[in-house]
Design a binder for these strands. Structure first.
Lengths: 117, 117
DNA sequence: CACGGCCTTCACGACATCTTCACGACTGAA
DNA sequence: TTCAGTCGTGAAGATGTCGTGAAGGCCGTG
């Protein structure tokens, strides 16, 4: 079934439960308070969980416009989102940077021995 | 058919899953973080998996220019790529050197039988 | 009006990447 | 053995990309 619509089907990634229809995010029994942009960004990445999503696509999906040269909006919101996710679930890391490619959303342990390289 | 476009069709070589459209490489459920050059080099070799690819061609495809005498760029990046592949999948060897000819991309066991002596 | 949250942009520092150089290991020929 | 060509790889400097605090504008609420 097509599931990229606005259905209220929760997206689950590790400890996170994201409910697009309600703008609700639960992290291990803990509810996150996100702004609209933060939430849309989270959903956009979580829908491609495990894959890399480029800044251009994120800008298109969340901001509804093309990414302009020098535009740092996406980076700034990724930073804010990371801060809130880390505050909620310190043991995991969800947003990974792939320089020049984009970001990858996937739950990984923070204290990794070999997972990061 | 020639399908070297930017389709997100994954290239599979043994334990490796390479997704050109996303810049993503998986090795046994493990995600590799590669730079742009490293990734392009990997794709260029993996597309000719099993065959030998010369430095000239690699330089043309990845760097977009002719290989100049004394240019070691290709060698350096092959080295980096080897290091990351070996870290991810220690049991296999993917990049084989054929002196004066080029490199061959093919999965082989590390505990070598004696195949290339 | 005053307050507070959200969004955008700017600026600076931290970090990753790219290129080139340098040295040594290895190989085959004489 | 000695020589010449080839390759592996660590390191340094230049460049590019990213992380993030802060300032300013907008808008809704009390």
């Amino acid at each position: 079934m097509a599931e990229d619509g606005d259905h209220a089907v929760p997206i689950r990634v590790d400890d996170l439960e994201i409910t697009p229809g309600e703008g609700l995010v639960r992290a291990g029994g803990h509810v996150l308070t996100l702004s609209v942009r933060e939430f849309q960004l989270l959903v956009a990445m979580a829908e491609h969980s495990g894959g890399i999503v480029g800044r251009e696509e994120l800008c298109r999906v969340v901001w509804g416009r093309e990414l302009r040269p020098g535009d740092r909006s996406v980076d700034v919101y990724v930073s804010k989102l990371r801060a809130k996710l880390e505050a909620a679930v310190p043991a995991r890391r969800y947003i990974h940077t792939h320089p020049s490619f984009g970001y990858r959303f996937q739950a990984e342990d923070v204290a990794v021995t070999d997972g990061d390289r």
